[in-house]
Amino acid sequence: MSSHGFSGGPAVHDPATLPSDDNVNAYTFCVELDGSQWFLQKGKMISYYGSIEFDGIGHGRLDRLIRTSFHSPLHASDWVVARGSGKMLLADRAFDVNSFDLEDGNLTIRSGNLLAFQPSLALKQSIVPGFLTLIGTGKFVAASNGPVVFMEPPIRVDPQALVGWADCPSPCHHYDHGYMTGVLGGLRALTGLGGASGEEHQFEFVGAGTVLLQSSETLMAEQPMGAVPPDAGVPGGGAHGGQGQQSGAPRLPGQLGDLQRRFGL
């Protein structure tokens, strides 16, 4: 961890002084590749030394890797595999980035907050829409707006501050009693809007585990990412899910949605 000397000029890094799989500063993470592979979210690489290739998830040579480590067709177009040797810097919108180690564990995280992970982890789509679950042993890198705070359940958290959770099997909604009472309560039940404090709705976690919170309520921009298959019993994919795309961010006129995203425009 190198610090920025305020008066003596900034620290200058080269491949020898850059850390290996650690933070350069609070906002930049350095990954060392040595013939190995890392999954990373598209566009989060800011620079690299050495020779590194970035291949889309659909790349034929990656078939085996995808079979073992990537189980999220919805997010396939957002992820790439970096291969080669050298040191690569990752960052995201000047958000705080941190790496975490999982040992034979599981962790569920908001899809926009996950920046990169080692292929020894398997990425799976969470049953909770918009979240991804990592299972196995290895290192991953996550971004958050402000430093991450770790909390022990039982706890109720603000939906916007939630980054993810590890080992807790019980993420559920919690509404304060006020949602039932009065005209405002009725309106709120109908529209999901309004209310007195804006804090009547929380996520509740119980049981053993860890809950990760960010110290602000700024979310990563949600990306429309298609929909889960419209099978019976699949959350978010139910009968009224329909095209799915529509459920994401409102589409601006002239946007082609899926097609446009596929072409990267």
């Binding site: 979210q41 566009g43 659909g58 790439v80 072409f263």
Partner: peptide, 10 residues
Amino acid sequence: RTALGEGGGE
């Protein structure tokens, strides 16, 4: 591959 939407993002 970029044209197919399977580019490397970089």
